[in-house]
């Protein structure tokens, strides 16, 4: 289980997230909506533990352990993985080598070749990480790496952005594999938190709960498809208005 309690996060002293509360139980997938710049990526980066994202209040509890101050790599070892929206290019490092590093010390039923095949990246394994990759190739590469990590909690930052309609089904398939969607929810051990701007990915991946984040606050939560329908009908202006009426004074 992931529990986020009263989390306030700042970047270079500027508060971006305010008093976030969120719980994802084992086997659940949640979706996070919100306009650009609302703080969605900041939340994922803070959960993953990137040092630039400073937790100034609150806590992050994962599998019963307070990981608020735990370094990035230790969170990865504990079972948190992340698919980045815009990962960096790492020149000279082959994709194959990073996938091998992700597999290190982990029992897996899939070899590097099988993972590459699954992500339709067999021809990309000897290429430098993300160098010259298209949007869809980057997303598939991200998911392949996270699959190799076998995390219990996967943070997915806009997995469908820049992906064409042909590839989005494959992206959905990879996420479903990652989140153990083939299993019944009671037997499922994996959790997911998906940021989606357009909501397209929800046509392929089921999410139990959705939230809207506006200006660093979670303004509401509920059925993700209902939320999405409202956003599509009325835009985020309605969410901003709603939040402004309910924002607590600090």
């Amino acid at each position: 289980m992931l529990e986020i309690k009263h989390l306030t996060v700042a970047i270079e002293g500027k508060k971006i997230l305010h008093d976030i509360n969120l719980t994802i139980r084992t086997g659940e997938t949640h979706a996070l909506f919100g306009p650009n710049g609302s703080g969605k990526t900041t939340l994922l980066m803070a959960i993953m533990g990137f040092p630039k994202y400073q937790v100034i209040k609150g806590s992050i509890i994962f599998k019963g352990k307070d990981i608020t101050r735990l370094p990035l790599d230790e969170r990865a070892h504990l079972g948190i993985g992340m698919s980045f929206q815009r990962p960096p290019v790492v020149r000279g490092v082959k994709t194959r080598d990073l996938v091998a590093a992700c597999l290190r010390g982990r029992e897996t039923e899939e070899s590097i070749e099988q993972l590459a095949e699954r992500a339709d990246l067999a021809d990309f394994m000897d290429r430098e990480i993300n160098y010259g990759f298209s949007g869809g190739e980057i997303k598939r590469s991200e998911l392949m790496q996270v699959l190799a990590q076998k995390p219990e909690l996967t943070l997915l930052d806009e997995p469908e952005s820049g992906v064409d309609l042909v590839n989005i089904a494959l992206i959905g398939e990879l996420i479903n594999k990652l989140l153990d969607k083939g299993c019944h929810i009671r037997a499922r051990k994996c959790m997911g938190l998906i940021i989606t701007h357009t909501g397209h990915i929800l046509d392929y991946v089921n999410a139990r709960t959705g939230y809207v984040m506006v200006e660093g606050r979670i303004s509401c939560g509920g059925d993700p498809h209902e939320i999405l329908a409202t956003i599509r009908a009325k835009g985020y202006e309605e969410c901003i208005k709603c939040m402004m009426e309910n924002v607590p004074s600090e």
């Binding site: 790492v90 020149r91 000279g92 490092v93 990073l98």
Partner: peptide
């Protein structure tokens, strides 16, 4: 950014740095 990206994949800082240097020399 590259070091932290590799750390998010489970490499510690020393391993991530070594991987980047090795890649640079390749």
């Amino acid at each position: 950014e590259e070091v932290e990206y590799l750390m998010a994949r489970g490499l510690n800082r020393t391993e991530a740095t070594a991987t980047i240097i090795r890649g640079f020399l390749r």
